Computed example of a mutant assay.
Amino acid sequence: MDDLARLAARAHKLLRAASDAAMSRHGVRVGQNLVLEILWEEDGLTPGELAARLGLTTPTIVNTATRMETADLVVRRRDPSDARLVRLYLTGRAREVRAPIEQERRRLEERVAAALTEEERRCVRSALEKIIDELS
């Protein structure tokens, strides 16, 4: 098991570095692209709603949103029907980087899976889903 954990940690580190390099070319930090992906599909979510969809804590999303607001990727607005809630909305800049970010993610996935057969890809996906389920 030590080998599996070590290999997973090494793969995570390398994948995170490659993702960060790809996203930073467009002014987006690694992790922020995941928030953007959700908001591109459904704009105006609360930090709590985003946290639930990403399996993160609300404070993590609030901190990420603060950095994203500074980078002109999102704006915060009070919910019109419940002023206690804050919702996150995409900026024009966030909409502009959608196509390049999606292209970077496709390239990265192709690079990650380049040496794998289709069957190996299915097995890796299945194994990762099982690991995530077990540890969640």
Results as ranks from 00 to 15, higher is better:
residue 132 I to Q: 14
residue 128 L to Q: 06
residue 104 E to R: 08
residue 134 E to F: 15
residue 65 A to W: 05
residue 7 L to N: 06
residue 119 E to H: 02
residue 76 R to K: 00
residue 35 V to L: 15
residue 43 D to Y: 09
residue 52 A to R: 11
residue 119 E to A: 08
residue 120 E to K: 03
residue 74 V to F: 02
residue 26 H to T: 02
residue 29 R to A: 08
residue 125 R to Q: 08
residue 55 G to W: 05
residue 71 A to P: 02
residue 42 E to T: 14
residue 17 A to E: 15
residue 136 S to W: 07
residue 126 S to R: 13
residue 21 A to K: 15
residue 121 R to V: 03
residue 71 A to M: 04
residue 120 E to F: 02
residue 80 P to E: 15
residue 68 M to P: 04
residue 13 K to C: 06
residue 97 V to S: 02
residue 4 L to D: 07
residue 59 P to I: 08
residue 129 E to W: 09
residue 116 L to H: 01
residue 86 V to G: 04
residue 41 E to I: 04
residue 18 A to L: 09
residue 74 V to E: 06
residue 14 L to I: 04
residue 85 L to V: 02
residue 89 Y to I: 04
residue 78 R to Y: 06
residue 79 D to W: 00
residue 9 A to I: 01
residue 29 R to P: 02
residue 9 A to L: 08
residue 126 S to V: 03
residue 127 A to S: 13
residue 113 A to W: 09
residue 41 E to Y: 07
residue 123 C to M: 14
residue 131 I to L: 15
residue 125 R to H: 10
residue 4 L to K: 07
residue 66 T to C: 07
residue 132 I to V: 15
residue 72 D to P: 00
residue 90 L to S: 06
residue 91 T to F: 09
residue 51 A to R: 04
residue 115 A to Y: 01
residue 61 I to V: 15
residue 16 R to P: 01
residue 45 L to N: 13
residue 43 D to M: 12
residue 111 R to L: 11
residue 23 M to Q: 12
residue 58 T to C: 10
residue 33 N to P: 02
residue 83 A to T: 11
residue 51 A to W: 05
residue 77 R to F: 04
residue 105 R to H: 00
residue 73 L to V: 11
residue 107 R to P: 00
residue 128 L to S: 07
residue 56 L to I: 03
residue 47 P to Y: 05
residue 82 D to Y: 01
residue 106 R to D: 15
residue 18 A to T: 00
residue 36 L to R: 08
residue 39 L to D: 06
residue 107 R to V: 00
residue 92 G to N: 05
residue 113 A to I: 01
residue 53 R to Q: 15
residue 98 R to Q: 14
residue 37 E to H: 11
residue 89 Y to N: 05
residue 40 W to F: 15
residue 36 L to P: 09
residue 22 A to E: 15
residue 79 D to R: 03
residue 15 L to R: 11
residue 41 E to L: 08
residue 100 P to F: 04
residue 60 T to P: 09
residue 37 E to K: 12
residue 31 G to M: 09
residue 50 L to R: 06
residue 102 E to A: 07
residue 94 A to G: 11
residue 61 I to A: 10
residue 26 H to M: 01
